[in-house]
């Protein structure tokens, strides 16, 4: 089965549930609803042989509604095909069903998203923070979290301080100019 046949089968099976389809440089992305995630995930693994979950990522579109996006990157070992699933999560709900029983590797990916973005995964067997320590009060990859961090204190566990940025953040700009101009410098956001 080719990748195209795989996508056709997917579209045929879930036609009413697919909210959008984009193709970009040979990569196919389907936008779905968070409610249908588990049905679609099971179908992808069992019927479409998308047996390998490459990655789960999350996006914070701060200021938009719904605020968050979760992206599943799937791969089929037998058919050598990639498929990307996207869904949106609102800030009020901030939760989505876990797929860690479907692809066990989702366990740690979902923990990381919970840790960094504060999205919960219902049905996850062990939803603890994975990078920061239990009890850290913030979700650092949210857009409203300052780059320099926030002060926090957990006696005998860990603490954080506000980092001095000294005029930063230090960013580069896309340009064809020489390395002197490309060099990362403190560039205050242009208003």
């Amino acid at each position: 089965m080719t990748a195209q046949e795989l996508f056709d089968w997917f579209e045929k099976s879930f036609a009413p549930k697919i909210q959008g389809k984009t193709e970009f440089r040979g990569e196919t992305t389907f936008t779905i609803s968070a409610i249908d995630l588990r049905d679609i995930a099971k179908f992808c693994r069992d019927e479409l042989s998308l047996d390998y979950l490459l990655d789960i990522t999350s996006i914070d579109n701060f200021g938009e509604e719904p605020r968050f996006e979760i992206v599943y990157h799937l791969y089929s070992m037998p058919h050598a095909a990639h498929l990307r699933l996207k869904l949106t999560v609102s800030e009020e709900i901030a939760a989505v069903a876990s797929v860690s029983d479907i692809w066990p590797t989702a366990n740690w990916h979902e923990r990381e998203i919970y840790d960094m973005m504060g999205l919960r995964f219902d049905g996850h067997p062990d939803l603890r923070r994975i990078l920061m320590w239990d009890g850290y009060p913030y979700f650092p990859l949210r857009k409203d979290f300052p780059l320099e961090g926030l002060r926090s204190e957990m006696p005998d566990v860990a603490f954080t301080k506000v980092t001095p940025l000294e005029g930063g953040p230090f960013v580069t700009v896309p340009t064809t100019a020489g390395s002197k101009d490309r060099e990362p410098r403190a560039r205050p956001p242009e208003l």
Binding site: P146, T163, L165
Partner: peptide
């Protein structure tokens, strides 16, 4: 702290 001007790194 080096290049890590970050919420996660002790300076």
């Amino acid at each position: 702290g080096g290049m890590y001007r970050s919420y996660a790194v002790l300076q």
